[in-house]
């Protein structure tokens, strides 16, 4: 690989890693955070019949997981385009 190409690919990789750390931060927060570590504290808040911590553990975390992947798909498709790595 020549230098120019090398530079481009490492810039791409850096941006990718930045997205990953943000998205995985949210992934951790909704499941291990809201659903487990802070479950008891959140349970004092009620939404309808759900205690909030319990809701995150059995419903909310799963919804957020699905959204996270689709956000990732969008971000990466844009990033691929920016760096010319998209192919159709």
């Amino acid at each position: 690989m020549d230098l120019e190409k090398q530079k481009k690919s490492s810039a791409y990789w850096k941006e990718n890693l930045k997205y990953l750390s943000i998205l995985l931060g949210i992934w951790f927060a909704v499941s291990y955070g809201a659903g487990i570590l802070f479950k008891d504290a959140l349970d004092s808040i009620k939404i309808g019949g759900f205690k909030l911590g319990f809701w995150f553990a059995q419903q909310g975390a799963i919804y957020v997981f699905v959204i996270l992947i689709f956000v990732y798909v969008r971000l990466m498709n844009k990033l691929d385009e920016k760096y010319g790595y998209n192919e159709d």
Binding site: W27, S31, G35, Q58, A61, I62, F65, L68, I69
Partner: peptide, 10 residues
Amino acid sequence: YLMGWTGGYV
């Protein structure tokens, strides 16, 4: 099980 078996997909 709910979080474990779905969070793995992320």
